[in-house]
Each structure stands twice: as C-alpha cells, then as structure tokens.
Design a protein around this nucleic acid. Structure first.
Lengths: 271, 271
DNA sequence: TTGCTCCTCACGTCACGTGAGGTGGC
DNA sequence: TTGCTCCTCACGTCACGTGAGGTGGC
C-alpha cells in the first residue's frame, strides 16, 4: 500500500494529478482510509497509471483515455481514433511549420530593415459576393492608366444602380484581368437582388478567394503603389505566390476627402 | 463609422472577438454611443485589427500583441521574442512529430495483432538515487543465470544494511553491466546517508536516466522475459534504441508471495 | 408587430498548478 | 513542539463560444 505521495513518486506524476484522476474517476485509489480520508494505492495500479500517461502522451483527452481503458471502444473504433489523431497531428505540424516560416520572415525583415513593417498583412478567406458591375479596358496595370478608366465607370455604375431603385454604398470593389490588348477593369458594387432581372449593368457573383493576402491602404489610390509593393514583398518573403491581380475593396470613401479613403487590397495567393 | 457587426464582417473576425479586444484594451472602438452603448469603429482601425490578427497568427498571446503594438518593445526586444517563438515552434513541431510516430506505431500494432498491447510503456526521466550496493558476476543476462547470483546478493545486502543500523525496504534495484567474462550484477537498496562513512557495502549514487522506457512487470522475475520483449519491441517500433540493460526496480515484494511482486523495468534509450 | 442587431453578465472550456486553511501521526 | 504529509475547497489559466435576458431602431 502506498500513500498518494509515494505512489506519485513511483509513477513520476504530481500528487495533484492523482487527485484529479480520482475526481474524474479515471484512476480511483485502491481504498480510502475511513478515518482521515487518505487515499491508498496498490503497486499494481502503476500499470493503469502508465497506460493513462501513455495514452495522454499520444494527445488523447482524459475523457478519451477513460473510454479506451474501460474498454468502451472496440479495436476498430480505437483504430479510427488513432487515425483521427494522426491527421490532426499532421495538420497541427503543417500549421506550426507555416507559423515558423512567418516568424522567420519577420526576423529577416528586422535584419534587413531594422524594424517590422508598420502595415500588416493577413491571409484570409474572402467569401463570395454578388455585385452590380460595369467593365472597361485600360492600357496597363498602373494607377495612371487605371484611374481615368475606373472613375467614370464607378460614376456611371452608381447612377444606373440608383436608377434601378437599388441602394448604393460601400463596399465598392475594383478588380482586374489580363487581356491581349491591356487590362480589363471591373467596377462593382455589392447588391442584393435575385439574378435574372434585366438591368443596364451586369449582375455577377464574384467567387470566393480561398486564400487572399490582404493589406489596408489609406488615402488616395494614386498613392497605392508603396502599399502594393509591401504586399508583394510580404507574399514573396513568406513563401506564397500571387495568382492574379488584387481586388481593391473601398471600405470607406467619403466624397469630399480622398485622404480618408480606406481600401483593402485582396491578392489571391497559393503556397 | 461601422457598427460592431459591420466592422467584424470587414475584418473577418467574430463580434465576440471585438468585444473581447475592447474588454482587454487591445482594440478600443473609436467611440461608444452614450445613449445605447453601441461600439462604433472607423475603417482605419482595420489596420490595427489586421496587425493584431497577424501577430496572433504568429502565436503571440494577446498580452504580447498589445505590448508589441503599443511600442513598449524595441526592435531588439522584438527580435528576441521572435527568436523565442521560433525555438518554441521548433520544439512544438518536434514533439508533435514524436507523438505522430507513436500514434503510427500504435496503428501498426493494431494492424499486426488486432489490438493494442495491454501493458503500457512510458518514457520518463529517472532521477538520481543513492543506494547501498553489493555486486557479483553472472554468466549471462538470462533469468536462469541472474537469479542464483542476485538473490543471495540481496539477502546479504539486507543483512548488512540492517546490521549498519539503516532501515530497509523497497525500492530494491537490480542493474547490470557487461563484463568480458559475463555480466556484472548489482543489487542495490535505497538509503539516505552521507557518503564517506565506512560500511561493509558500497554507497553509490546511481546517475539519472534522462530517457528511460519503462514497463511494469507483475509476478516473479522468472517470468520477466515476455515483459522485456514487449518493452524491446516497443522501443524498436517507436524509433528509439536501447543504450544499456534495464534497471529492475522492485516496487513491492512481499516475502510470502512472488505472484504479488511488482517490478518496473527502466531501460535507457535514445532517439 | 416581427426581425435584426446591439448590449451586459456569466458559465464553460482542459488539465491541472497553486495557495488557503486545517488535520493527523511521528 | 516542529516538520511533514495528507485533506478539501476554490481560484486562475487563455481566448473566446455560447446562451440568457433585455433593449432600440426599422
């Protein structure tokens, strides 16, 4: 017979753990002294304690350990639980390796520039969205070429959407596609209508972007280039690669002051 | 101005997270409506939200995120924090890979034998221990060769230790070393004395075993072979290798009934 | 009026670590 | 008597998720 302290020393666990396992019914002492409540264990119970520790070390919860030990799971169910643990662990490892790569990218930035960037980039899923849309063609993918095309498009689109009796407000979305003779420019405004109705603009469901590297740009789109470059460098430094032009989502754009505009760039990426 | 719901949608976080960040002072709303307590955010605050999410994704706690954002840490301190995170992540990944290897070993056992072993093996650190010791020589490392050597050793050791006025009781430890002409057999009993005194037995500090694969054996040591084999197979299946003979620690050994003996085998291993 | 969004508590999560406050045997 | 071990609460951990119960504007 061992007191809880001796049993803990032999099992190389804490006394608190043994009390906890008693409390949740995972490992009851062999008997409890009626007079003083002392827990008393048998040496043979070390075998069960070892099984508990071994299963716990595999990453099972104590609930799972209990049902495995109390033979409430068949060999086949156990195989299923192990398979699940296996894939969870693989995911966990992959996620931690991604995190590690990001940490190392940050360290490289500090080595190179002496500080971390002030703007921050986050990879998110962008859900699909239904928009009213007009399109045009620009000579190249530069602010000087895009601006004169997209601004009239948004103006015209706003007029037509209001004319169709729909409400207009942010987010306003600009996005781009390569064309043989330049860049196709799309101006889009979120709307909630059923498709099929006939309007003097397109109704399009923009697809989700499973992985978009995003950054917030403040101020006029004339000065978006440094922000885009920060985004591009980050994508590169973190082992992603771009799979298209960024969507530009105007989150706030008071008409009177472009310095207060807030735009999110959403660039589709893959690892 | 965004309500909390709109701001959460733009930032792709939950409303609850924004309330939590407000509560801990990490991201306060731009202002709070005095009448109804509504939180109101500015689009520009998305930049801070993104920085929070990005740092959180690196694995920093929200406390750390706050001190980084509020510029209470210098670039040098930040580099230190990133380095620490880096090594933590590497450790985490290594630990999960070890766990994964163990899960896979379990799966192989189920495929091969249709069930998991009933006895369980745990890798532990064995702390150093001071013992009284007598030694002998056996022809080989088999129960039939060891038994006749170690039993008289323990008997004699017990007599001498009692004769020296020290108390005797489990754990009794047997351990082994290779010798040119057989195996050196050590019989040891834990004692607490200062070294230097002269006894008719040795006082030895058994070193710690940083990594010991341990299994509990019940019953006479005559029947230890299947238990040893279980341990050896496990060591092999889990990618460890043995670096010596196992210590045998008698945890319980009532003199009248060897079937009730409980012994822990502690085999030193490395990855 | 019904829905929708907002609010503030407050419990639950998981496996213990860590006191606080007290008892019993050597 | 002093130490040591044992006991039972009960809070704290970390970042929210999830109700409960209620309010305000369309």
């Amino acid at each position: 017979m061992f007191t809880i302290g001796d049993f803990a020393r032999h099992g190389r666990v804490s006394v608190r753990m043994l009390r906890h396992y008693d409390a949740i019914g995972l490992l009851r002492p062999d008997r409890v002294d009626g007079a003083n409540g002392y827990r008393l264990y048998q040496a043979g119970q070390l075998a069960r304690l070892n099984r508990i520790i071994a299963l716990k070390d595999l990453g099972f919860t104590l609930q799972q350990v209990r049902s495995i030990l109390d033979e409430q799971v068949s060999a086949e169910q156990l195989r299923g639980m192990l398979k699940l643990r296996q894939s969870d662990l693989r995911e966990q490892i992959a996620a931690d390796e991604a995190r590690l790569a990001h940490v190392e990218a940050r360290l490289r930035m500090i080595e190179n520039e002496g500080h971390m960037p002030d703007e921050d980039i986050v990879v998110k899923r962008i859900p699909p969205i239904r928009v009213a849309m007009l399109s045009g063609l620009a000579a190249s993918y530069e602010p000087e070429a895009i601006g004169p095309v997209i601004q009239p498009l948004f103006h015209e689109l706003g007029t037509r959407v209001i004319g169709a009796g729909l409400s207009v407000g942010p987010p306003f979305i600009a996005y781009y596609e390569d064309a043989p003779d330049g860049v196709v420019v799309h101006a889009a405004i979120q709307v909630s209508v059923e498709p099929g109705t006939d309007y003097d603009f397109e109704i399009v469901d923009l697809p989700e972007i499973p992985h978009a590297a995003t950054i917030v740009h403040r101020g006029s789109m004339e000065h978006v280039v440094p922000t885009s470059q920060t985004l591009a460098r980050w994508i590169d430094a973190n082992g992603y690669s771009s799979t298209g032009y960024a969507r530009e989502v105007q989150i706030e754009c008071p008409g009177d002051n472009v310095d207060l505009w807030v735009t999110e760039l959403q660039e589709p990426v893959t690892k």
